[in-house]
């Protein structure tokens, strides 16, 4: 479950509170020395931090701001433990950019509920790509890893927009974002329709996506994704480029260069139980396959056939 760091020198001393958290499968990390425990948090970030307001030398404020300003840790949920008096006086949320608060008087039930809520909220939003709202890398890794441990044969497919850079260079980033959103909507809708809850889509970043479907749906899903992409992409291109059949632009040396129009490539790795034990192996097979499929002209998908299913 979650690793919960406590920086609450004056609270959570009772053994039953920790026991309750641990009974729910959480790991509780606490150190009597405030400075030491804060150091530990930055070195090995927990999944959630509970910090008491009013620590010595404004250390609480410092730590909260440091965490929230750190790009990798900004999404770590922080719960601030406050006194009734703090609540009466009011808090300056700009200097306490926390996610929730816990009153010192709160019952153990309330504390646990707030922790669960904060964790579930973090799982919902933290990893999602802001442009497409699709799960990002850590969810992708977790989902694919847990799929590898299951018995059903699945396919993991890597989707990549070809010639996206010349598209962005020519039309600008905001139109580039439209194409990324378009691809994400196509993936979500096709996979939802064919695989329902048995499917998964993640946004690795930029123009890279990954999806997972039951093995027997692979070809149908890939075909439909490519058909839909081919139908829509002309709406995102200028008439003159469609007519020319390529992007024409000047490189830094002023030489006129032409690039093929934007297309879509999908590299599919079938995952039959036992073939792969780790996500990294799937990713490396995919990387090799991706080179091949991207070398083909236009929109294509390729399925890795090197290890026939069931061997």
């Amino acid at each position: 479950m979650a690793r919960i760091a406590l920086v609450t020198p004056d609270h959570f001393k009772r053994a039953d509170e920790r026991l309750c958290l641990e009974a729910r499968g959480h790991t509780v990390v606490a150190n009597a020395d405030v400075a030491r425990s804060l150091e530990g948090i930055l070195a090995d970030p927990p999944d959630l931090l509970i910090i008491q307001k009013g620590l010595h030398r404004h250390m609480d404020q410092e730590v909260i701001l440091a965490l929230k300003n750190n790009l990798q840790l900004a999404l770590l949920p922080i719960l601030l433990m406050v006194s009734e008096r703090d609540l009466a006086v009011g808090l300056d949320w700009a200097s306490y950019p926390v996610d929730d608060l816990i009153s010192e008087q709160a019952s153990i039930e309330e504390i646990i509920t707030r922790i669960d809520l904060a964790l579930s909220r973090a799982r919902r939003v933290a990893d999602n790509n802001p442009l497409t709202k699709l799960p990002g890398n850590s969810s992708i890794l977790k989902t694919i890893q847990s799929m590898l441990e299951q018995a059903e044969p699945r396919a993991v497919a890597y989707v990549d927009i070809d010639n996206f850079k010349p598209y962005n260079d020519k039309y600008g980033f905001s139109r580039g974002d439209e194409v990324i959103r378009m691809v994400s909507r196509i993936l979500v809708n096709v996979i939802q329709e064919h695989a329902g809850a048995g499917g998964f889509i993640g946004h690795i970043g930029g123009d890279d996506f990954v999806f997972m479907v039951p093995l027997e749906k692979t070809e149908t899903v890939c075909r439909e994704v490519l058909t839909n992409f081919t139908a829509l992409i002309p709406l995102f291109l200028d008439e003159e480029d469609i007519e020319a059949g390529c992007f024409v632009s000047k490189d830094r040396q002023g030489n006129v260069r032409s690039f093929p129009l934007t297309s879509l490539s999908i590299a599919v790795v079938p995952c039959v139980p036992g073939h792969y034990s780790h996500y990294g192996e799937v990713a490396s097979t995919a990387a090799a396959l991706k080179k091949k499929v991207k070398a083909l002209e236009g929109s294509n998908f390729l399925i890795d056939r090197r290890r026939p299913a069931g061997d």
């Binding site: 959103r181 909507r185 979500v188 809708n189 939802q192 709406l235």
Partner: peptide
């Protein structure tokens, strides 16, 4: 909200982007 301002002009294209739900 969907992010394709003034771009989509046919039902079949809209359906691909909006999806069943």
């Amino acid at each position: 909200f969907f992010g394709f301002p003034q771009r989509i002009s046919t039902v079949s294209n809209a359906i691909v982007l909006l999806g069943f739900n």
